[in-house]
Amino acid sequence: MFCRVGKTLFAFSQIPLPGSAQSVTVRCLFAQTSMGIDGYIKTRERIKVQFLNLADNFRSKMLEFTNPTSNNMIFTEDLKSMVHLVENKPEDVELLQNMISRFNRQNKELRFGSFIFGPVVMRAFHYLNAPQVALKLFKDPELDGFFDQLVSYQVLMDLLYKNSMYKEVLEVFDIIQGKQIHGPKYPKNVVILAMASCYKMNTKEYLDYAMNAWKKMLELGHTPVRRAVTFAAALAINQNSPHIALEILSCTQHPNYITVRNLKVAALADLGRASDALPILRHIIETDVPEQTKQTFTMDVFDKLKRAVNENGNQDLVKEFRNIEHCLREGGHISDKVLDEHLCSEITVPNLPGRQMDDRNRAGFQDSLHQKPQYNYRNAPPRHYRQSLKDME
């Protein structure tokens, strides 16, 4: 079985690549709510009100303090504010980058805050749709460790995916594998985005890449989640490897889910085993409950199976298929959507890894908006102290 795969299953035949059936519309794979961007946007709105008449003064101060000749420090509250005030303007983005670099270089003995900046910075770049800047900072050796949170990885990879930067998604995925982070070596949302990018690129090279990653995950005891399973299986089908797709699909515990069901039918059709797909169709008819959500087959998968049945030439099979088709159409079980729409549908799971820490980050930040900033030093030289904008109010 592919869930406990042997090496021989990774030897693919050299078959000419089929035409891509990918959707031309690219969007985020994860919903804003599942990445915490909704919370980031709400905080931005509150910060804009708080800094209504101070934003320009604040930016000027930060430009002065990030000057290489300046001895002033960038405090935690400064960076918190700027990451929520930043606008989609080159000068603002550059200022934020310089503040992050300055903040990270400062003597660590002078910082005792528990605020984790990686996720909120990545959300800011996602909001601004600035994938190149986000990737540049992630790969900056001077910021090593700054973005080492599962949420930061997910938000960055989703931003790259949104901008069709699929090779860069896999570049980030490879970098993550080389890091020693707390938690699983193959975080589920990171794996989903990697498999989705392989699916989007739809080549033999990236099928091999996906299967090699899959093998490593299984060797470490990781079982990929359904969305990763369906992207990998769909890629295998698109690359004329339906036998691999069937083995991948055997890993999921959700055989009746719409994408799993359709992919299995498509794989059987491509293998010339149309008769083995008919029980799947009959099951939908037999278990139809009017008050429940309709279980359906997408029009492209159903058409593929219909062609396979006709090409088989077995008249008994053709007759049985026509009877089943009549029942499916009458019951509304054939949709007008294509499989790609379901595969790439937005993921809206609200509880993402690290969200609890992010909520504490936000709670602490909101409290700080209503009190004078108190900086915690350990024998910090007096020359580092300066008035903040809150002191100037």
Rank of each mutant, 00 (worst) to 15 (best):
C3H: 11
R4Q: 15
V5L: 14
G6Q: 13
G6Y: 10
G19F: 10
G19P: 06
G19S: 11
Q22D: 11
T25E: 13
M35V: 10
D38R: 13
K42S: 12
V49Q: 00
Q50L: 12
N67A: 12
E77S: 14
E77L: 12
L79P: 05
D92R: 07
I100V: 09
S101T: 06
Q106W: 05
E109H: 06
L110I: 05
V133F: 03
V133A: 09
L137K: 07
G145Y: 09
Y153F: 14
Y153P: 03
M157F: 08
K162A: 13
S164A: 14
M165T: 02
E171K: 08
Q177K: 12
V191S: 12
L193K: 05
M195E: 03
K200H: 06
K215V: 05
E219A: 14
G221C: 03
F231R: 04
A232C: 11
A233R: 00
I237P: 01
I237N: 07
Q239E: 09
I248V: 12
S250C: 02
T252N: 01
H254K: 10
P255C: 02
K264A: 01
R273S: 00
L278H: 00
L278Y: 00
I284P: 00
E291K: 02
T296C: 07
T298K: 04
E311N: 13
N314E: 08
K337P: 01
L339F: 12
L343F: 06
L343P: 06
G354V: 02
D358P: 04
Q387I: 05
S388D: 13
S388V: 10
L389V: 14
K390I: 15
